[in-house]
């Protein structure tokens, strides 16, 4: 159970970083931390104490394996995260070109 709480704390750290930091890059890092906390949560769901890696091999019997399904799902989720992150960084670089700052407080042309 405690490991899930640690996972939740990681999530909270990411959320804190996203909400409080004013630098765009730090916000992106915060979002990344949140995402990986959820990924970690998925992996923990499939974890089994003293379990084996879920790889089919000639010498290995299928006993006490870790659940491979969450791992497969998380691979997909990581790929999606990669895409979002790349887009986000690209937009941030462009934003820097326009505004010459990473401070969210000064990027405020849209209002109302």
């Amino acid at each position: 159970m405690s490991i899930y709480i640690l996972c939740l704390i990681l999530f909270a750290v990411g959320l804190y970083c996203l909400l409080v930091k004013r630098n765009l890059i730090k916000k992106i890092v915060g979002l990344g931390i949140m995402e990986y906390a959820v990924n970690l949560f998925f992996i923990l769901l499939g974890y089994r104490h003293n379990g084996q890696a879920p790889i089919l091999d000639k010498e290995q019997a299928i006993v006490n394996m870790v659940d491979p399904l969450p791992q497969a799902l998380i691979l997909t989720s990581i790929v999606i995260g990669l895409g979002v992150m790349a887009l986000m960084v690209a937009i941030t670089v462009r934003l820097y070109e326009k505004y010459r700052t990473f401070d969210i407080g000064e990027i405020r042309r849209l209002k109302g």
Binding site: L31, M34, I80, M88, I91, T92, L95, I107, R109, L110
Partner: peptide
């Protein structure tokens, strides 16, 4: 500039929603 700013906002909130 405006479009990028709007997109960044949308990106952050959309990603939080996805998470």
């Amino acid at each position: 500039a405006e479009e990028l700013e709007a997109s960044f906002k949308y990106l952050v909130l959309g990603s939080v929603a996805s998470i």
